[in-house]
Structure formats: C-alpha cells, structure tokens
C-alpha cells in the first residue's frame, strides 16, 4: 500500500537521531544520497538533535578536560580518512563506497546477490541484488522488515515503477509480481531480516535458491 518512494518521517527521524539499526540506516542513507529532495527531513532530524543538545542539562566534564583537549589540538588525527577495503565498489553511491563486499553469487535465473559486509543487527543484514532485464519475480509471500532502494535500473509492480533512488518498504500482507523493466540490469540495496526470505518484491524469487 505504500505508494511513496521515500522512507517514512519516523524512519528518517530515527536515521538522523542515530537510533536506526545499521542495516536500515545503510538503505536510508543510499536513498538520501540518490534523492536530494528527501534530505530536508534528515536535516530536520539533525536540527532537532541540535536543539536537544542545546537544551540538555549540562553534565560537567572532568577537571582538566578542556586543557587536555587544547593540548591535543595539534596532534593529527589517526584515521581521519579510512582507506576503502579492497572489495569495496567505488562506483556505488557514497554510503556504500566504504563497505567491504562479498562475492557475487548466482541466485537463480538472471539474479545475483552479494553481501554488504559490516552492518548487522541480529538477523538483519544488507545485500546488493542484481536482476537482469525482463526478469519477473514469481509470487511469493514473505515476512520481516524489508527495505529496498534502487541504485540503478528500474522495476515495476502493481504500485508502479520503482527507479533510481526509490525506496520501498515491503508490506508483509501484500504479494506482488515485480518485473525489471530497464534495459540494463536493476541493482538494488536491501536490508533483510531473518534467514528465509529475501528483501523486496524482487528478492522474492530468490527465496527458493538462496540461504543467507
């Protein structure tokens, strides 16, 4: 039923607050990188964070903390610019660029999947999905929180077309039959929960093939 192509305000707030789970934050950050028009909501969340900071009842720092900080000012930072891991893909949107990736694995006709290593929250993790043009997902039910953001290409469902930057939160009550309609393969990043079911409508076709 979610016709919007952006995360809900409460999800964007949790992202800005830093309380969203790591896998979900990756998908939201990717959406924000690709869809500037959503950024004001994240800006608003951080502005609220700033207001909470300004209005916080101060807790005194230890004696000498300020002098200690002043003494450290000219010490260069140790790891200000982390080097991307060897497996990182620098062509991905910025939030994904610094993350190590697992190998692409065949996951059914026209479908490949690779793990984004790092962001985890219990059973929830992040994957990249690459689905060939014209590929159609069979009907399949699913459960758990599933967030998807299209990085390139496009797919279509009964809700319409999902193209670059579009964000989809799967509704566990509805089954769809998405189909890749772009001439190129459709690349998505997804947060998926649980062992059995792959994220997004597109991911559903993977379920019989892939154990993640």
């Amino acid at each position: 039923m979610s016709l919007r192509r952006q995360p809900s305000e409460e999800r964007l707030l949790a992202y800005a607050a830093g309380t969203l789970s790591a896998p979900e934050a990756v998908v939201v950050a990717t959406h924000l990188a690709l869809k500037p028009e959503t950024r004001p909501w994240a800006d608003l969340g951080r502005a609220v964070g700033g207001a909470l900071l300004d209005e916080a009842e101060p807790v005194p720092m230890d004696v000498g903390a300020r002098d200690a900080a002043l003494a450290l000012l000219d010490t260069p930072a140790a790891n200000d610019k982390p080097i991307p891991p060897e497996s990182a893909d620098l062509s991905l949107p910025e939030p994904l660029r610094g993350l190590p990736l697992g190998p692409w694995r065949w996951a059914g006709p026209g479908v490949h999947v690779r793990n984004v290593i790092g962001p985890r929250d219990g059973d929830c993790r992040v994957v990249l999905l690459r689905i060939a043009p014209g590929q159609c997902a069979p009907r399949h039910t699913h459960g758990g929180v599933e967030l998807t953001c299209v990085i390139s290409g496009a797919y279509t469902t009964e809700d319409g077309v999902f193209a670059q930057g579009d964000f989809e939160e799967a509704d566990p009550k509805v089954t769809h039959q998405p189909r890749v309609i772009s001439e190129e393969a459709c690349l998505c990043v997804a947060a998926l929960d649980g062992q059995i079911v792959l994220p997004g409508r597109l991911g559903r076709l993977l379920a019989p093939f892939v154990k993640l």
């Binding site: 830093g18 790591a22 896998p23 934050a25 951080r46 964070g49 900071l53 939030p95 962001p119 929250d121």
Partner: peptide, 24 residues
C-alpha cells in the same frame, strides 16, 4: 548545534560498532 550533534552521533555509532560509521 546540529552539526556538533551529528559529529557526536557518528562517533557514538562508531563506538558501539553498530555497523560502519562511513555510512553516515
């Protein structure tokens, strides 16, 4: 205030090792 909040938020996420702060 918002900018300093964001720095603190990122460092906190990093310290909790909740995923990778580079995302933020």
């Amino acid at each position: 205030a918002a900018w300093i909040f964001t720095i603190a938020r990122n460092l906190r996420i990093d310290s909790l090792r909740r995923g990778d702060a580079s995302v933020y």
